[in-house]
């Protein structure tokens, strides 16, 4: 009944290798961000497969949801391991790589043969009936009638997981209260604090170094004008001398 069309075959044979390459690249890439990018390739290919196989809604949703999900993965990579993180090639368990590869290939082989055996003499039926009123409408009808309970329970589960993750990850800073703008302003004007901006260093006068202090009206150097992280240095005689404006141009 649903004969495979030429366009579908062409799409499959272009995208299937890409999906496999993406999956392999995701496993083999050293850099965690590159892994995430390979994963996007695989997910996009899967999305197109769904669309080609008369499931446009699930295909689009696959793309939209997985872009957001992989974006989150991307952020986690950035936050947890930093920008330049790469896998180390040192084995923590002896022989782990060989055993892991063997087991992986074995599992893939088992699953592939299993699926192949199960679907070999399969005739696909019921696509027209399922998409009778349109793909989206058919899906909506199923989700909100037969499967409404499973659907709602799944959403509740996801929300619980999200809230739980937030509670576990959120660290309450004990004893430190958030300081509001009003409190900060009051603090600024308390006795012993100078509310104005600090004077700039004396870079415009006799030296162009930010380590040269500005001079106060009485001629003393202003310590406030120098950043505390700068090393102190000995001033030259010219820098120490009063400015011509103070000495009357002499």
């Amino acid at each position: 009944m649903s004969a495979v069309q030429t366009g579908e075959i062409i799409t499959f044979f272009i995208l299937a290798p890409l999906a496999v390459i993406g999956a392999l690249g995701m496993v083999l890439a050293r850099n965690a961000v590159h892994s995430a990018l390979w994963l996007i390739l695989t997910m996009l290919s899967l999305g197109v497969f769904y669309i080609v196989q008369a499931g446009p809604f699930i295909g689009m949703v696959q793309i939209i949801v997985y872009t957001g999900a992989i974006m989150m993965l991307f952020l986690f990579v950035l936050m947890l391991v930093g920008r330049d993180a790469s896998d180390s090639v040192i084995e923590t368990l002896r022989g782990q790589k060989v055993v892991g590869t063997l087991l992986g290939v074995g599992l893939a082989g088992l699953m592939a043969t299993g699926i192949y055996q199960a679907t070999r003499d399969y005739t696909v039926v019921g696509l027209e009936a399922a998409n009778k009123d349109g793909n989206v409408q058919g899906l909506a009808k199923l989700i909100f009638t037969n499967y409404v309970f499973a659907f709602e329970v799944t959403s509740a589960l996801l929300i619980t997981a999200a809230v739980g993750a937030m509670i576990l990850a959120h660290q309450e800073k004990s004893g430190v209260k958030a300081v509001g703008q009003v409190a900060k302003m009051r603090e600024r004007f308390l006795p012993g604090n100078y509310p104005g901006p600090k004077p700039g260093p004396g870079v415009f006068a006799t030296s162009n170094s930010v380590a040269t202090p500005a001079k106060l009206p009485d001629g003393n150097p202003s310590q406030r004008s120098i950043s505390p992280i700068l090393p102190t240095r000995e001033l030259t005689a010219a820098e120490k001398a009063d400015k011509p404006t103070l000495t009357g141009g002499a």
Partner: peptide, 8 residues
């Protein structure tokens, strides 16, 4: 045009 055009 596809049934899910806006989603595209």
């Amino acid at each position: 045009d596809i049934p899910v055009a806006v989603l595209l």
